[in-house]
Amino acid sequence: MALITCRDLALGYESHAILEHLNFSVNAGDYLCVVGENGSGKSTLMRTMLGLQKPLGGSIAFGDGMRPNEVGYLPQQSAIQKDFPATVREIVLSGCQAHVGRRAFYNQSEKALALENLSRLGMVEHQRRCYRELSGGQQQRVLLARALCATKKLLLLDEPVAGLDPKVTAEMYALIERLNREGLTVVMISHDIAAAAHYATHILHVGGDRTFFGTVDEYRRSAPGRRFIALEGGGDA
């Protein structure tokens, strides 16, 4: 059984559908890249999968022992966060908020989990630093560590390399690939078709005249894939 199965999904805002008849599934261990032009509904799809907005039609089913709240979400950074006075540790701990339930404070095992995820991403020596003083790549690692605190199974990443320079982008991709090899399922929104074709196992192409869902090899051979890869100059990946 798949972790997430979307059947005939329609999504958008206030009865105005951006995407319709979306069918795809994510299995444990998959690395799914969602690609498409700006405004094609990639972020809306992710918000719908997270339960932040209701689908206009169709269904999203969670399976394989997966509950809707057990996802690790890496959102795009908001303006508020850019100068937020908080330490790395405080932010990563907030990833444990779902485990806390009715308790008021984090317990030892949650603090240990936060620390473990910080060291997993090589950020443990920065734990007392202020978030706004970190570089863009370090900030993304912090938010990724927070997402890891919230999930053991599934990461949803919304353009994790937006605004990062090429070197840091490559490091970020390597990091996500490592997490995927360690057993986490990854769903990532990306503009970077070359990287998507290189790292992902599956591609979901939305927008345009036709949506596509399949493995990377199938995507390279498909009509939207060929066109998009040529357009983005990513054929050499």
């Binding site: 966060q81 404070f105 997402a147 919230a150």
Partner: peptide, 23 residues
């Protein structure tokens, strides 16, 4: 404020993330 301090921090820093994990 003291009882909900951690939740208030989480909601202030990132509403969407909090909502996604069920807060």
């Amino acid at each position: 404020f003291v009882l909900f301090y951690n939740k208030i921090f989480a909601v202030t820093f990132d509403e969407d993330f909090s909502r996604a994990v069920g807060t």
